[in-house]
Design a protein around this nucleic acid. Structure first.
Lengths: 344, 344
DNA sequence: CTGTTAGCGCGTTCAA
DNA sequence: TTGAACGCGCTAACAG
C-alpha cells in the first residue's frame, strides 16, 4: 500500500489484523489513515504474501438442481460477515471434471473446501488433502470422511420412505429414479432394504430408472414406463420431488386416483410438494442448514476453536401428506398444514 | 516461478499466453519444461502483477429463483475453456447490499462484470464504471446501459401475455405478482398497457401483489386474495411461473375449472408448466442464452473483437398451452407438445 | 524474437 | 510495541 500518512506500513497492517498487540493510540492513528486514504486491502497481494486466499471453494454437481441451490444459500449466509467468500463450481456429475476443478482450486490456495457427496475419486481425495485446509463433504454421511462431513444417511432415508408406504398398506411399491447419481443409488438401496425385509421385493418389475436428469417431465415418463412394465403397482417412491410431481401429473392425466389407486412419496420436501393437489408426502432434508453447518465447521477450524465436530448426521424427517394417505386420507387436512420450510 | 529448466522465465510466460510471438522451437522448449516441472500459474501473483484478476463477477438478487440458476448455468458454460472463472454473489434484492458487493469486487479488479437488472443505484453504476472492465447488464433491455446489455423487454412481454388472454376472450383479467422486484413491476406495467388499451382496466379490483418472495405457496394465496376481492375474475396473468402453478393448484382445490372458468398465464416457461395438468401457458424467456451471450460479449470485448454488439434484445415468446385455451381448448393436445427447453 | 530487470501490495521476518 | 527490509510469483517495460 502507499505510504499510509505518517504511519508505518507494517504497524498499520499489524493493527488491522491483531488489534491486541497494538497501542490504542497507534490503532487510532492507523484507522484515521485508513479512512482518510480510503484504503482497502488487495486480496491478490494478501494471497500472494501469505500463500492463502480467503476463498472457500464449493464443488457441487449441478446448479439446475434446487437442492444444491438451497445448499449454496446456506453457505452464502453462513459466510456473511466473515472475511471469506465462496466460489462455486459444478462438476456436471463427472469425476474427471471434479478433479480438474480441484486442480484449479489448488492453485488458489483456498481457506476451505466444501464438496458434495462422498464418492470422490482417489485422485480427488488426494488433491483435497494436499490443499492443507479444512475440507467438508456435504449431503451425506459416510464412514471415511476426507476431513469433516455433514449430511444425512441417504440409504436410511430411502428405507424410511418406503416403510411409510408399507405402513399405509401399499404392497407393490415401485421406485422411480432419474440421473441416479450416487445419492439416488443409495436411496434405491434403502428402498430395497425395506422391500426385502417385507418380503415384497421385485426389482425386475418395480424398479424404473433413467440416467437422464431429474425433472418433472422425466417423472411422468418414468411412471408411464413403470405402469407399462408393472400395471398393478400401487405406489411409487421417487428419488426426487420433481420426479414425484411429474408422476402425480401423469396419474392425473391417466385418471389414476392418488392416493387411493396410487401412493406417491417424494424426496427432499421441496416447496412445491406441500401445495400440489393432492399434496405429496416427502422426506425432508436440511440442505440450507447443511450449508450453514459446513461453513461453521470450516470457520471454527480456521479459528482454532476446540472440539469442532468432525462428522455431523443432520437427520431427515418423513412428512406425511395426502399422496400416501390411503389409510387415513379422509382425516388429513385438504391443504397440508405441514408447510413450514427450513429456510428464511 | 522457479527457474524453468533452461528457459528464461519471461520467454516462458510469454510463450504461455501469446503463442504467435514466439518461435515454435522456443514454444516447444517451454511446454516441455511446463510439463516436466508440473508448473501451474499462481493466480494471485498474476492478479497482483497485472492489476487484473481473471474473475468475472456475477451479481444477482437471489439464488432461490430458478431463473437466476439458469442464467448462471449459461454463464458457467459460456466461460468453459476460457481462463476466466465466474464468481457469484447475491444482493437479496437490496440496493445497499449490491453496492457493498460491488465494492468488494472492485478490490479484486475483475476481468468483467455481469449484473442483473437495470435498476442499479447511481453509486453502483459509478462503482461498475470505475472497475474499468466490460460490464453487462442482463435480464432486461433498457435505454441507458452502463456499458453493454442483453435481455428482453419485460414490459412488452407482460403486455403480450395479457393480449393473449384477451384474444382468448377473457375479460376480467387479474394480475398476480409476488416479490415485485423491478422486473415484475415492468410486467405489471405491460399488463396495464394491454388492459388500458382494451378498456378493461380495473386496478383496484384486479391487481393483487405481495412483497413476499415468489413461490408456489404464495401463488395460491394470491389467487385466494384476488377471488375475495374480485369473485368474477375470469383469468390471471402471473408475474412468475411458480405463482401460476400455485394459482392452478388453488383452482383445483376450489373446483374452479381451468381454462374454462379461469384462464392462467405464467412467466418464464419453467419446465414444470409444460407438464402440469392442465399445462400452463407461459412467456418463454431465454435465461441460459442470456448468460451465454453476456459472457460472449465480455470475452469479445477483452479480446478486442471489433463491432461487439452493445445492446441485445433477446426477445420472448408466448407459448400457448391448455391453461388459457378457452377458445380452442378442445383441439389442443392433452399433453402440450411445446416442450423443448432452451437448454441442454 | 529473446533475456533481464523492477516492482505489484502485502505478510513475515528481523532489529530497534 | 514499533519500524525496516525482504520476498511471495508473476507481468510489463526495456535491453539485447
Amino acid at each position: 500500500m502507499a505510504a499510509k500518512a505518517n504511519v508505518s506500513v507494517i504497524t498499520a497492517s499489524r493493527a488491522l489484523r491483531q488489534s491486541e498487540k497494538v497501542t490504542p493510540k497507534t490503532r487510532a492513528r492507523v484507522e484515521a489513515a485508513v479512512t482518510a486514504l480510503g484504503y482497502v486491502p488487495n486480496p491478490a497481494a494478501q494471497a500472494l504474501a501469505s500463500a492463502r486466499s480467503r476463498i472457500i471453494g464449493v464443488v457441487i454437481p449441478s446448479l439446475t438442481n434446487q437442492i444444491f441451490a438451497d445448499l449454496l444459500r446456506g453457505v452464502m449466509d453462513g459466510l456473511e460477515g466473515s472475511p471469506y467468500s465462496p466460489q462455486f463450481v459444478n462438476t456436471r456429475y463427472l469425476a474427471s471434471r471434479e478433479e480438474e476443478l480441484l486442480r484449479i482450486f489448488a492453485t488458489q490456495r483456498p481457506a476451505g473446501m466444501i464438496v458434495a457427496g462422498i464418492d470422490q475419486s482417489e485422485a480427488a481425495r488426494a488433491l483435497l488433502r494436499a490443499m492443507n485446509c479444512p475440507v467438508v463433504q456435504v449431503m451425506e454421511t459416510g464412514p471415511d470422511p476426507i476431513d469433516m462431513i455433514v449430511g444425512c444417511d441417504q440409504r436410511a432415508a430411502g428405507q424410511a420412505a418406503v416403510e411409510h408406504l408399507l405402513a399405509q398398506g401399499y404392497q407393490r411399491i415401485g421406485f422411480l429414479g432419474a440421473r441416479m447419481d450416487p445419492r439416488a443409488q443409495r436411496r434405491l438401496a434403502g428402498y430395497r432394504d425395506a422391500l426385502a425385509r417385507a418380503g415384497l421385493a421385485d426389482d425386475a418389475r418395480l424398479v424404473m430408472t433413467t440416467p437422464q436428469p431429474s425433472s418433472f417431465t422425466t417423472g411422468g415418463r418414468l411412471l408411464s414406463d413403470l405402469l407399462a412394465q408393472c400395471p398393478d403397482a400401487d405406489a411409487v417412491f421417487c428419488a426426487n420431488d420433481d420426479v414425484a410431481l411429474g408422476a402425480l401429473f401423469e396419474c392425473q392425466r391417466r385418471g389414476i386416483s392418488v392416493p387411493h389407486q396410487m401412493g406417491i412419496v417424494g424426496f427432499n420436501d421441496l416447496d412445491v410438494v406441500s401445495c400440489s393437489v393432492p399434496t405429496i408426502t416427502s422426506v425432508r432434508t436440511l440442505r440450507y442448514r447443511t450449508g450453514q453447518m459446513a461453513v461453521e465447521m470450516i470457520r471454527a477450524t480456521l479459528e482454532d476453536v476446540p472440539d469442532v465436530p468432525r462428522a455431523v448426521d443432520i437427520g431427515f424427517e418423513i412428512i406425511p401428506r395426502q399422496s400416501s394417505a390411503r389409510q387415513d386420507g379422509q382425516t388429513l387436512p385438504q391443504h397440508s398444514t405441514t408447510n413450514s420450510k427450513e429456510t428464511p
